[in-house]
């Protein structure tokens, strides 16, 4: 969990870089870290719906990032 929190802070730092691409990269990494954190917390405290939230976050986050990257490539 500590590594994940450190990684979340690092991804926030990546998001603040100037270019749009770095923002996208940071956002996708943030999504992954948050998903892992939700699953870890849900496993530790036995909270069932954290897993559903994590699954939605993982799928929608990655698909959204890929879609934005495709739009950015064509623009």
């Amino acid at each position: 969990m500590v590594a994940l929190i450190v990684f979340l802070i690092a991804t926030l730092r990546i998001i603040t870089y100037k270019s749009i691409s770095m923002g996208l990269i940071g956002t996708s990494s943030f999504t992954l870290a948050l998903t892992l954190l939700l699953i870890t917390v849900g496993t530790i405290f036995n909270i069932g719906f954290f897993k559903d939230i994590a699954l939605a976050l993982l799928l929608l986050g990655i698909v959204g990032t890929i879609a934005y990257a495709a739009v950015m490539r064509r623009a």
Binding site: I20, S28, L55, L58, I62, V63, A69
Partner: peptide, 26 residues
């Protein structure tokens, strides 16, 4: 394992889409 499988398939797509978008736009 479901999360692992989904991410195993989507992570390379994501990395390639980001690199491709960066190459063609910035």
């Amino acid at each position: 394992p479901l999360f692992a499988l989904i991410y195993l398939f989507l992570a390379p797509l994501l990395a390639h889409a980001l690199a491709n978008a960066y190459f063609h736009s910035e």
